[in-house]
Amino acid sequence: MARPRTFDEKTALMAAARTFRRHGFADTTTEQLCTAVGVGRGSLYNAFTSKDELFIRAIEAYLQALSEVEHEVLGDPARTGAERLQGLLDLVLEEEENAARDGHAAGCISVATLMSPDLRSRDERIGKLVEEDRSRRHEAVKHAARIGQADGSVTRDDAPDGIAWFVSGLISGIRVNAQAGAPIKVLRRTAATGLRALRP
């Protein structure tokens, strides 16, 4: 008979995702995961089978939660296109500011996974999840850019697709700079400078 679970699975997966984001897959230890989730080693692997399986489940849960939050911002009809893009960057900056209070960067599963072919090759589901998330966000940002070009808040000098790639690069740069130790005020200036480039 399976042992009763002493934790909420969604909460556990999000805690594991935060740990993987901070340390990366290779450098995240079982002890760190047990501490984050709040269970012992036996209970952890009874619930999730292996570190690899927990990583995949954690990515899936994190990206789903992120998608829901971003959809609220990028699909908000009460905002101009530029305000939607600003809102997306505000989400990133808020995460980094909260993480900085705890003495570290938030990290980014998507960037870390895209930059680690060996990690993606461990299981085809990993690359598929990250690529689907990248594609979803890309299309959502393209839509926000189109809205902005129509309402006059976003420059028409670049195609929506190019703007989406620019915003993706801006977010990735902010994430990497945060991990390199850039203070939040620098990250905010970086975001502001990037957004100015998208003004008409």
Rank of each mutant, 00 (worst) to 15 (best):
M1S: 13
R3S: 12
D8W: 01
K10V: 14
T11E: 15
A12C: 05
L13N: 06
M14S: 01
M14H: 09
M14A: 02
A15Y: 03
R18A: 15
R21L: 11
R21A: 15
A26L: 04
T28D: 00
T29F: 12
T29V: 03
L33E: 05
A36F: 07
V39G: 12
G42H: 11
S43M: 15
S43C: 07
Y45M: 13
N46T: 13
A47F: 02
S50L: 10
K51W: 07
E53K: 10
L54M: 06
L54A: 00
F55E: 01
I56N: 03
R57F: 03
A58C: 00
I59F: 05
E60G: 05
Q64I: 00
A65E: 11
L66P: 03
E70T: 06
V73W: 05
V73E: 07
L74V: 15
A82W: 14
R84I: 04
Q86F: 08
G87K: 14
L88S: 01
L91C: 03
E96N: 09
R101C: 02
D102H: 06
H104R: 07
H104A: 09
A105W: 08
A106Q: 07
G107K: 07
G107F: 09
C108D: 15
A112P: 06
L119K: 04
L119N: 06
L119W: 04
S121A: 13
R125E: 12
G127E: 14
V130W: 07
R136T: 08
R136Q: 11
R137P: 09
H138I: 00
H138P: 06
E139N: 01
A140W: 08
V141M: 15
R146E: 14
I147W: 09
I147L: 15
G148V: 03
Q149W: 04
D151I: 02
G152S: 10
G152F: 13
T155S: 15
D158C: 05
P160A: 01
G162A: 07
A164V: 08
S168I: 04
S172D: 13
I174M: 13
R175Y: 11
V176I: 15
I184T: 02
V186W: 04
V186T: 12
L187K: 05
T190Y: 15
G194V: 08
A197L: 10
P200M: 03
